[in-house]
Design a binder for these strands. Structure first.
Lengths: 178, 178
DNA sequence: GCGGACATGTAAGAAGTTACATGATTAG
DNA sequence: CTAATCATGTAACTTCTTACATGTCCGC
């Protein structure tokens, strides 16, 4: 139930509308916890029902500005310290498992694509890092920088691994070609 | 829709019942694409409806042994070469984003836990690697080894990153203590 | 006045989790 | 005979995605 906590977390810094939050989900949190508009509005309604946020002000065009309540902050703090291990699914790794169904050439091509995709992701994050370095405001970018570094290391690792895996496969087939 | 492809992939090696598949999901695929019993049985029924698998034989206790059809193999091959980038959500990284809500001490404690968790995961996979090294059978372990190496590198990276992040936080607060 | 941004919501469906429910076979 | 394993299924609920639907305000 982390969408809930993402919303609460974003509201710590300052009050925001669903619309405002969506911009944050599409920028700051895009690589960490993406969410759709329909999810965010729904969750805000549920959070207000539960008393974890309040509608502090109403603006033009039906704008509702939400603030965190005491209970909301408590809920967030509880979640932050809870830290139970996650289950992750990876379609990319699942594909690797079944690579034997393809020809070695196809498998190598696929792994090459993975390496290139990782390299592209890495480049993208490096760009993001550059744009973040100068205008530094608030908790979100401070800790966001830690998350960003994780992403940089992750994609670097992905690329290295994909290149290594390619070698593994080509090495396996080597003696057949002699 | 990768559960479908996980099931198809497992059936490439040999025919299996839902019960058999569950054992594979709980061992080989546990770290890559976990699935529950109710999901697997449901998916098998849908796959049979769609003609991607057949009930090749029925055994004792209502056992249904499924095999892959031509269409099923084609579907799997198509998926294997499709390779579109995934969206990943990470509650762990989300927590990092909001670490500013905690005291520096609590934040450091949390990151230390992350490092320890990563170290434990790494140790667990190294054990798995040992047990896999001797009895080598089939495509699943051959390519599973590639996936395993990914896991090893991932957890190593996670641990290093968590230690680095701890330093970042303690460095920030340093001048306050003097 | 009109286009783009602001702003909120609903509905249908896919995917996943947890819990319940039932029964047959086999090894000791 | 009885406990463990084999074996399949259903139901309720949560989460996420995609698409639809509607309307207002502000700057030019």
């Amino acid at each position: 139930m982390s969408l809930r906590h993402a919303v609460l977390g974003l509201l710590v810094e300052k009050p925001a509308s669903g619309y405002d939050l969506m911009k944050l989900f599409n920028t700051s949190l895009a690589n960490v916890w993406p969410a759709t508009q329909s999810q965010v509005y729904g969750e805000l309604a549920r959070l207000a029902d539960a008393g974890l946020v309040d509608v502090a002000a109403e603006g033009p065009r039906g704008r509702k500005e939400y603030t965190l309540t005491e209970e909301g902050l408590a809920e967030l703090r509880g979640w932050l310290m809870d830290a139970q291990p996650e289950v992750h699914r990876s379609a990319a790794l699942l594909r690797v498992f079944f690579l034997g169904v393809l020809t070695p050439e196809q498998a190598v091509e696929h792994l090459t694509q993975l390496a290139e995709q990782a390299a592209a992701d890495l480049a993208r994050l490096r760009e993001l890092q550059k744009s973040l370095d100068w205008d530094n405001k608030g908790m979100l970018t401070t800790n966001g920088r830690l998350a960003l570094e994780f992403g940089l290391r992750l994609h670097e690792m992905r690329e290295q691994w994909a290149r290594w895996a390619t070698q593994q496969i080509t090495a396996d087939g080597e003696d057949l070609g002699s």
